[in-house]
């Protein structure tokens, strides 16, 4: 396998890792897999691309607006949908699952209606820079993606250790009822987790759409990949989603390389079934001594 493919593995892996980090935050805060995170990332990338191409916006402004929109969509999902439905159904799992699947579909169709149904190219943040490593070249966009991934993960890791809300989020993730009984602001922490997840996947969508472009249907695949990355990595540590993302990216690059492109979807399904059946908690599991 050529060295250039490894650069691609790292690039895709960082993207999957960031989406999985979004899943991780929502899972800790709300005990819910927010499948709509993939479409949020798509919406961020697609709206920025549309603003640049059709409205002539500068890159920075369009990118910031795209990320803000993703975060706003995440907050809106929690405030307008998940929370009222949770309150009505006593926190049942099925109603919130339907709600996020419906949001997935609605956001996808909204993007298709607003920005058109064709594939749009993203624009690189650093088009003129590239790093020559001898056998492989890393372009500027990949450098930015790796940098943003490291910053996001380090940021979330520090936030969950040092800050007030981050520590409350860990407490809520560990035991919701106990956290509520202790008088912690569970609802507000949930909202912060949703917003942070929206910001992170919004950024990820911006950075990744420059690689292969983005269309209104990209979010569906991204949502599944991010979910799988989290399942592979597990929720034992903040860094687990990144490991899961890199492993999934490795599998997704190796399988088409050796077995042909059509086998990719089968391989992903096989990986999912294997992990679900044998190791549903992922590779990194938090061990609690009692």
């Amino acid at each position: 396998m050529s060295a250039q493919l490894w650069v691609s593995v790292v690039q895709i892996g960082c993207f999957f890792g960031m989406v999985a980090l979004g899943y991780y935050l929502v899972l800790e805060g709300a005990d819910l897999f927010n499948f709509a995170l993939g479409p949020f990332a798509m919406f961020s990338g697609l709206s920025a691309s549309w603003l640049m191409a059709e409205q002539g916006w500068p890159l920075g402004l369009a990118a910031v607006l795209g990320i803000v929109i993703a975060a706003a969509l995440a907050v809106l999902t929690e405030v307008a949908l998940v929370r009222p439905i949770d309150a009505r159904t006593d926190g049942g799992e099925l109603p919130s699952l339907i709600a996020v699947v419906a949001v997935l579909f609605a956001v996808e169709q909204l993007a298709g209606t607003l920005f058109g149904r064709q594939l749009r190219p993203g624009r690189s943040w650093l088009p003129d820079t590239s790093l020559d490593l001898g056998p492989a070249t890393v372009d500027g966009q990949t450098l930015i993606l790796i940098g943003c991934t490291l910053v996001s993960f380090t940021g979330v890791w520090l936030w969950m250790r040092r800050s007030k809300y981050g520590r409350i989020l860990r407490a809520v993730g560990g035991n919701r009822e106990a956290a509520r009984t202790l008088g912690m602001p569970v609802g507000r922490v949930r909202l912060v987790a949703f917003a942070l997840a929206g910001l992170i996947v919004g950024l990820a969508g911006q950075l990744f759409s420059a690689k292969a472009g983005v269309s209104f249907q990209s979010g569906f695949g991204w949502a599944l990949s991010g979910f799988l990355a989290l399942v592979i990595g597990g929720t034992g540590s903040v860094w687990a989603p990144l490991v899961g993302g890199l492993l999934l990216a490795l599998a997704q690059t190796l399988v088409p390389y050796y077995l042909g492109s059509a086998s990719l979807d089968y391989a992903v399904l096989a990986i999912a079934i294997l992990f679900f059946a044998l190791r549903p908690n992922g590779l990194f599991v938090r061990k609690v001594r009692v």
Binding site: E93, L97, G221, F227, L228, V231, Y266, L269, A272, F276
Partner: peptide
């Protein structure tokens, strides 16, 4: 139920 939803979605794609 999230896992069933995800694995069946993946199956639909495959």
């Amino acid at each position: 139920g999230f896992y069933l939803a995800a694995v069946t979605m993946l199956f639909g794609v495959a």
